[in-house]
Design a binder for these strands. Structure first.
Lengths: 206, 206
DNA sequence: GGGGGTATCAAACGACCGTTTGAATACTAG
DNA sequence: CTAGTATTCAAACGGTCGTTTGATACCCCC
């Protein structure tokens, strides 16, 4: 069960439910009344605990991004420590933490879709927030990729990484039209494998 | 100038403005009052000409998708007629029509972002509409790709095409965090080139 | 040149939005 | 137990939402 029920504080229930509803209906499309009703808390609780809907949205991001960033940087450090690491290793360090977070509870899988929503929102405020809390991780990965792909100049490298980030976002958020048949966990593991395989070839292209 | 002004019918002005506002603020985020105000038409005009907001959204899609589908299928037919066409040719037939449509007027470039929005909306109604009006084109391209990539079984092929579609959607919608410096047209041409290069390598991977 | 569909308009509908209030309740420290 | 703080609650605020209405203007054909 998602953390929208007893055993969790009001604050946690709101965050959990908001995450899934934002994923499902967008930030404008999910109302605080829907959120508080599903979380079984009073309507005013959102403004009491978070101040505003905008702040609630940011908190939904902060909570997961902090964790995701940490895991990604840890994984990258572990890879970099190996003397002969490959492109696939670095890609794995980037993709797998997102995968694992999206499986550790029901809310996590929603968050990946929330993140994809954020890309679709061209809202400047939200983009700045994401860039502030996310940019340094992307820069570290870019450096690691750059060392493994010395034949690409900086401009070319960033173009390709942008494409990788795009296909990752899209694939992890399950936007694709093609219907899947397997269980969620198995499907996601296959997604990661295909993504790494595809991205590695694209990055290595002359 | 976008078609939000004199010389265009009320209906066309609404469609043009709705397209850019939906791209900017999402379907829930852009209100009919904003749309009609920017189009300089009466609020009731939307319900008079389209029946409802939902139908307006669908009409925004239908108008551009019909044109895009036609151009893509024409380009694919032209490529298929060449006896020795390459993977890059088919990718170009898929990517370039989207590129050209997004440059022929100001609204077109907004539409690509609207399309990306639609992916983010997990709304079942909208997805069915897209699949009904878009699926046959994707299937034709899948067949063309399949003939050029006989080493991939059907399942593997669809996985990779899904990734290609994802990176295309993302890149064309300009979601990336990396800031671009060139003029819009030049930027878009470079996007297509990078995308085709990257996708071809990913598809050809063993 | 008047009649009839077509289009536009201001105004209003009820519903829902995010937020605020002030009282009621729960909890905790002295 | 009590004083004081932290939380929950029902209710209401003004505003905006999509949609409907009925009157008004337009336009073209008979």
């Amino acid at each position: 069960m998602s953390p929208g029920q007893p055993g969790f504080s009001t604050r946690e229930r709101i965050l959990g439910v908001a995450e899934t509803l934002f994923a499902r209906h967008g930030f404008a499309g999910a109302s605080l009344r829907q959120v508080t009703a599903a979380a079984k808390v009073n309507l005013a609780a959102v403004n009491y605990h978070f101040g505003s809907k905008e702040s609630l949205i940011e908190e939904v991001f902060r909570r997961r991004l902090d964790e995701l960033n940490r895991h990604r940087l840890d994984a990258l450090a572990a890879v970099a420590a190996k003397p002969e690491h490959t492109l696939e290793d670095v890609l794995d360090a980037f993709v797998r933490p997102a995968l694992e977070q999206s499986m550790d509870d029901a809310g996590g899988s929603a968050f990946v879709r929330v993140l994809a929503r954020a890309y679709a929102e061209h809202d400047e405020r939200l983009r700045r927030f994401l860039s502030d809390n996310y940019g340094h991780v992307l820069r570290e990965f870019a450096a690691a990729f750059g060392r493994l792909l010395p034949h690409l100049d900086k401009d070319e490298l960033y173009w390709r990484l942008d494409i990788v980030a795009g296909s990752l976002t899209y694939a992890m958020a399950d936007f694709g039209m093609i219907k899947r048949r397997e269980a969620v966990g198995e499907h996601r593991e296959r997604t990661v494998r295909h993504l790494i395989h595809f991205a590695a070839a694209g990055l290595r292209a002359p």
